[in-house]
Structure formats: structure tokens, C-alpha cells
């Protein structure tokens, strides 16, 4: 069995060597691997893909994409580590994401996806140090408005805008009332969205449903919440957060309400 495994490992690791001449196909392959790692919420896989993108970076003629995917892996690793209560380590990844995104938008100054992800990362940094919100907040805001002006029809940017608004206090232009229209816009745009190339990011389809579901739950619209979560699961049947956290929570809140009646 052990030799079999060794053989398998050698085989798998040979694959990239063959593809080495063409980094574009590698980027596509690793992008899909990253999406899968995120879907499975698998930290080790995320780290693997991140490392591969680091190796792609000096070889590719599209370095901004490599920077973007490293940052996207960093961002998800950061979230993953936060969920494991390892916030100091998470902070390092978010800082690294910001660094890579700055490089990405420096190379391609019209890279809307880069600006959008940067906005989220600034938002996350506020979580680590609320005391710095006074200048991280405006930076996050500037990045998302830049992204929206560059790509007004990209659903992911509306999704990120919505999540940002969901998290920011009402006094800084946030709140669930402001988040809802952005998320609804994202749902609408995702229906007909197709990235211009297979090299480009293509994630987040279930996102607006997850967040609209959370908002519906907060507003105690249980049926709407249920519908949104089911929509999310229809897109990503293994969405851990929806399946194991949000849906059970919804059912509990519902039964509690019925009991109290």
C-alpha cells in the first residue's frame, strides 16, 4: 500500500512538471483546485494551492493573476484560521493578502477583482484592530467604489460590497438595509454571469444567498431564510457553514419561537 501511495504521489507531482511550459493552463487548473479547497474548507489544500501559485508567480506572464490567487488563498486561510480561533496567525495571512493585492493592482490598474478583494481584506483587518478603523474603513470604501466603477456588472463585486455593508456600522453607511440591495443585485447578475476567460476568478455564486439568508434570519423571516439557504445548497451542496451552522440555527430559532407561542 505504501509503495502504491508513493507511486501515486510521484505521478501527481509529475503532472505540473509536464504542464510547466504553459502557465495559463496551470493557473486554470490551480484556480479550480483552490475553489475546491475553499468548498471543502480544507486548510492543507488551500496551503498547497497557495504554494503552487507562489511558484507560478515568477514564471507567468500574468503575474497579477498569480498575486490575486495567492491573496484569495490567503484570505480564505485567514477566515479558516479565525474559525479555529488562531487570530494572530490569521492576521499574518490577511496582511499578506493586502500586500499581494497591492502588487496586483499596481501591475493592472484596472483589475476590478483585485480592488474588490482588497476592500474585503481591509474590512477584515478592522476586526483584528478596531482601533484602526478610522483609516482602514475609508480605504475599504475607496477600493470597493473603484471596483464598482471598473466593473459595474460583475456580481462578485456587488457581493463583496454587500458583505462590507453588512459588517459596517450604520453610521458609516452600512447596515443590513444597505446590504440587501447589493446582495440582491449580485443574485441577479450571477444568473447570467460568465467570466471573460477561464483564467479569471469565478467564485461566490452561493454567497449572496448565504448572506441574504443571514439577514432574513436576523429579521426573523424564517421562510425566506430557509429558501435562501436551500438556494445556496443547490449551488454548493457541501457548504459547511450553511449545512452545519446556519440551517440548524434557523431550525432552533424557529422551534424556540413556536414553543414560546
Amino acid at each position: 500500500m505504501r509503495t502504491f501511495l508513493t507511486i501515486l504521489i510521484i505521478l501527481i507531482t509529475t503532472l505540473p512538471a509536464i504542464a510547466q511550459t504553459n502557465t495559463d493552463s496551470l493557473i486554470i487548473q490551480q484556480r479550480l483546485a483552490l475553489d475546491a479547497a475553499v468548498d471543502n474548507w480544507n486548510e492543507a489544500d488551500m496551503r498547497n494551492v497557495r504554494a503552487t501559485f507562489e511558484r507560478i508567480l515568477p514564471l507567468t506572464d500574468k503575474p497579477w493573476l498569480a498575486h490575486y490567487y495567492i491573496a484569495y488563498a490567503d484570505y480564505n486561510l485567514g477566515l479558516n484560521l479565525i474559525s479555529q480561533q488562531k487570530s494572530e496567525e490569521a492576521e499574518k495571512f490577511i496582511d499578506d493578502a493586502v500586500e499581494h493585492l497591492m502588487k496586483a493592482i499596481d501591475i493592472d490598474t484596472k483589475f476590478a477583482e483585485g480592488f474588490a478583494l482588497l476592500s474585503t481584506c481591509y474590512g477584515l483587518k478592522i476586526n483584528f484592530m478596531p482601533i484602526k478603523s478610522i483609516y482602514l474603513g475609508p480605504r475599504s470604501g475607496v477600493a470597493i467604489s473603484k471596483a464598482l466603477s471598473l466593473a459595474p456588472d460583475n456580481p462578485r463585486i456587488h457581493l463583496i460590497d454587500g458583505i462590507g455593508k453588512y459588517h459596517s456600522p450604520r453610521m458609516f453607511g452600512g447596515g443590513i438595509d444597505k446590504a440587501k440591495p447589493s446582495l440582491e443585485k449580485a443574485v441577479e447578475l450571477y444568473q447570467s454571469f460568465k467570466p471573460a476567460s477561464a483564467l479569471l476568478p469565478d467564485w461566490g455564486y452561493e454567497g449572496p444567498h448565504v448572506w441574504l439568508g443571514r439577514i432574513a434570519m436576523q429579521e426573523e423571516r424564517w421562510d425566506d431564510a430557509q429558501q435562501h439557504f436551500e438556494d445556496a445548497l443547490a449551488i454548493k451542496p457541501n457548504h459547511g457553514l450553511v449545512k452545519y451552522v446556519l440551517l440548524p440555527k434557523l431550525n432552533k430559532s424557529r422551534t424556540n419561537e413556536q414553543v414560546s407561542r
Binding site: 508513493t6 504521489i9 510521484i10 507531482t13 509529475t14 505540473p16 512538471a17 504542464a19 510547466q20 502557465t23 496551470l26 492543507a44 496551503r47 498547497n48 504554494a51 503552487t52 507562489e54 511558484r55 507560478i56 515568477p58 514564471l59
Partner: peptide, 21 residues
């Protein structure tokens, strides 16, 4: 990884790695 190539690996929980080039 090997500089200038895509050949490389990530160390596992015990720090081990293996790849070919």
C-alpha cells in the same frame, strides 16, 4: 521548490515533503 520551475511541494504536518523534477 526549484527556482525558475514549477516543481515543488508543501511540507506535511510532520515537516516531510517529496517531489520530483
Amino acid at each position: 521548490y526549484l527556482e525558475g520551475t514549477i516543481d515543488g511541494a508543501v511540507s506535511d504536518n510532520d515537516g516531510y515533503f517529496l517531489f520530483n523534477s
